[in-house]
């Protein structure tokens, strides 16, 4: 697609706004990492989902939404759960849609259906969720991101869908 055909983002200047308010919290990259490629068809590939939505199973320790530096833990969300078994703990994005239908930010039912129909080969036993408010970019990149990536690899995932809320 050409530059001119790019649709506009709904909320403008997100990068500049966050940087003005929380300088140094965003991670900027100059390079691109080499891609990994699928080794088998999609219909045989096990999918994991990673989300910064703050979605978590009901009854697990709520994400620390009040901590000034952020929360560097993640929750495993069993991929067979139903929406009423999930709740959201976060303060930084609008949950007006998710409060009615959690699939708008954490499409667990749609992914279950795609696995059921054989469009994808299956789902990892758990999905992974954390919150996006993190003021220590090094800890985010070197600890939390690596921890989750290791967990995803261990879960036997062949592919991963990521959604930074």
């Amino acid at each position: 697609m050409t530059e001119t055909s790019k649709p506009n983002q709904l909320r403008l200047e997100v990068w500049n706004t966050v940087n003005e308010r929380y300088p140094g919290s965003m991670i900027s990259k100059e390079d691109f990492v080499p891609l990994s490629f699928l080794t088998k068809p999609l219909s045989e590939s096990k999918l994991s989902f990673v989300s910064t939505s703050g979605v978590q199973p009901v009854g697990t320790m709520p994400f620390d939404t009040v901590h000034p530096i952020g929360d560097y833990t993640y929750r495993e969300v069993p991929s067979n759960l139903k929406p009423h078994e999930l709740e959201i703990h976060q303060l930084k994005y609008p949950t007006v849609g998710a409060n009615q239908d959690i699939n708008v930010i954490f499409p667990i039912e749609r992914l279950q259906e795609l696995a059921q129909e054989g469009v994808i080969g299956g789902l990892t036993d758990n999905f992974y969720s954390f919150i996006g408010y993190n003021m220590d970019p090094d800890k985010l990149e070197q600890k939390l991101a690596e921890d989750i990536a290791d967990a995803v690899v261990k879960s036997g995932a062949d592919i991963a869908l990521l959604c930074p809320a």
């Binding site: 990492v33 891609l35 990994s36 699928l38 990536a149 690899v153 869908l161 990521l162 959604c163 930074p164």
Partner: peptide, 11 residues
């Protein structure tokens, strides 16, 4: 991190 560990991703 995931791509580096060999898992193709899309966000």
């Amino acid at each position: 991190a995931l791509e580096r560990k060999g898992i193709p991703t899309v966000s």
